[in-house]
């Protein structure tokens, strides 16, 4: 009994976490969608750390446009799936990939100069923490508790369980 209760409150808090992260991604995506001048150029061009060459190569004239669009679409996709509770595992995965890239473009390694950050970080920064949170969400989908998944779940339930 206590087990299920505990489980229920855990589920609720995970739903809450899911909505918050979805919120964050969606808003970032929408802002970029409606700002035609936005580009990741500066962020990528000043990349540091072991993979700087990779990020700098993304600033190439011929692909930077694609990079910008893909980034924006992914942000919005992650936001929608997490908020609506549908394909959330896929959303969590995509979000982790994005955050991983943000993390490695400007990694908070002590031997690198920390550029343009508002706090103090030592290997761990907010990108990494959000990534870890998405990992939890990936393993514990809650769409069937709150979200479009719930409807799907209910429908199959109704089909199976005779009404009392």
């Amino acid at each position: 009994m206590t087990g299920t209760l505990q489980k229920e409150s855990l589920t609720k808090s995970l739903v809450f976490l899911r909505i918050l992260i979805g919120w964050h991604f969606l808003y970032e995506g929408v802002i970029k969608l409606f700002n035609p001048d936005w580009t990741a150029f500066g962020y990528l061009a000043t990349a540091q750390g072991p993979f700087d060459w990779l990020f700098i190569s993304l600033t190439n004239e011929s692909i930077i446009g694609w990079v910008d669009t893909l980034n924006m679409i992914t942000l919005i996709f992650v936001g929608i799936t997490l908020i609506l509770g549908m394909y959330e595992k896929l959303g969590a995965l995509a979000g982790m990939v994005l955050l991983g890239m943000y993390y490695f473009a400007h990694p908070p390694f002590p031997w690198l100069e920390q550029l343009n950050v508002e706090g103090s970080y030592w290997f761990v920064n907010k990108n990494l923490i959000e990534l870890a949170a998405l990992w939890v969400l990936y393993q514990y989908p809650t769409g069937s508790y709150f979200g479009l998944g719930y409807l799907k779940h209910q429908k199959t339930n109704t089909a199976k369980t005779p009404q009392l």
């Binding site: 979805g22 929408v30 709150f146 409807l151």
Partner: peptide
Amino acid sequence: LKGLGGLPILGSIWWAGT
């Protein structure tokens, strides 16, 4: 409530962003 509760949240964020 449980199935579509995310929709108004989604709508608000979209609106705010725009």
